[in-house]
């Protein structure tokens, strides 16, 4: 699938069809997920209605990590095989991942205030996710910091691979350190430890976020490809333009001098 899509022309053709389809599905799934998590899901017997924040917070956290993994894998492909589409994919995905990380941090803060009595605590999980957010920002800044876009892409790819070190630290920080943040209750060995009535909206929201990511990724990749093509056309036009016959070049030169 990935190999087959790796041809930019084919990607453009396929994504043309997939974007509207993906967009409407994402909207429908997210609407269903919102209704389920805000209305149908029961309040927690300990946490009350604040547990509803979980349905945004936890899927956002999953996406924050998965999107980073996606960026890292695409970067590795771009570095090893010098594949242009992989580089475009990595740089298009990073802002989406940064947005998910921001949502994760902000909703976590709003959940922590009523539950722990603090907007922010410096425990291992929160700190490592904050570092992930900064890594995203650093990646975006680095990718856009060069006049030559491919240079930025390659520098970003190396950074993305260096930052992978942070992923296991985030994932296992709740197990390695005795922290305030609760350990994983869904993605754990031995199956999820969470009531089905809460698991269903959680999974729906996660699916909605994933579709949203796919949609944004395709739209952003198409944008990047369009912009690259436009730049090539402009450069081409600039190279061709001087060869156009100018009206009375001698007179033009003369007036320019005077």
């Amino acid at each position: 699938m990935i190999n087959w899509l790796a041809n930019p022309a084919r990607f453009i053709r396929v994504s043309e069809k997939a974007v509207p389809w993906c967009g409407w599905t994402a909207a429908a799934v997210l609407a269903l997920g919102l209704f389920w998590s805000l209305v149908l899901a029961p309040p927690d017997y300990q946490q009350g209605d604040t547990v509803r924040i979980m349905y945004v917070h936890v899927p956002a956290a999953w996406m924050a990590l998965s999107v980073y993994l996606f960026v890292a894998v695409a970067s590795a492909v771009a570095l090893v095989w010098r594949h242009p589409l992989a580089e475009v994919a990595a740089r298009s995905a990073a802002p989406v991942g940064a947005a998910f990380t921001f949502v994760c941090l902000a909703t976590g803060s709003l959940w922590g205030r009523p539950m722990w009595g603090a907007w922010w605590v410096w425990d291992a999980r929160l700190t490592s996710v904050l570092v992930l957010f900064f890594l995203y920002l650093g990646y975006i800044a680095l990718v856009n910091a060069f006049d030559d876009p491919s240079r930025g892409g390659r520098a970003g790819a190396v950074l993305a691979l260096v930052g992978v070190v942070n992923l296991p630290i985030i994932k296992f920080s709740v197990d390695w350190w005795n922290t305030l943040h609760q350990p994983a209750s869904v993605m754990r060995i031995g199956g999820p430890r969470i009531a089905v009535s809460m698991l269903v909206p959680l999974v729906i929201m996660a699916a909605g976020f994933m579709l949203l990511f796919a949609l944004l990724l395709m739209v952003r990749m198409r944008t990047a490809l369009n912009e690259r093509k436009a730049m090539a056309l402009r450069l081409n036009a600039g190279a061709v333009a001087p060869r156009q016959p100018e009206p009375e070049p001698a007179v033009a030169a003369h007036t320019a001098i005077s």
Binding site: G48, D49, T50, I53, H57, A60, A106, T107, W111
Partner: peptide
């Protein structure tokens, strides 16, 4: 009212 937690639940969804 969200069981008294309206000030936390709605902003969370709003920010997202």
């Amino acid at each position: 009212a969200m069981g008294g937690y309206a000030g936390f639940v709605w902003p969370a969804y709003g920010i997202a």
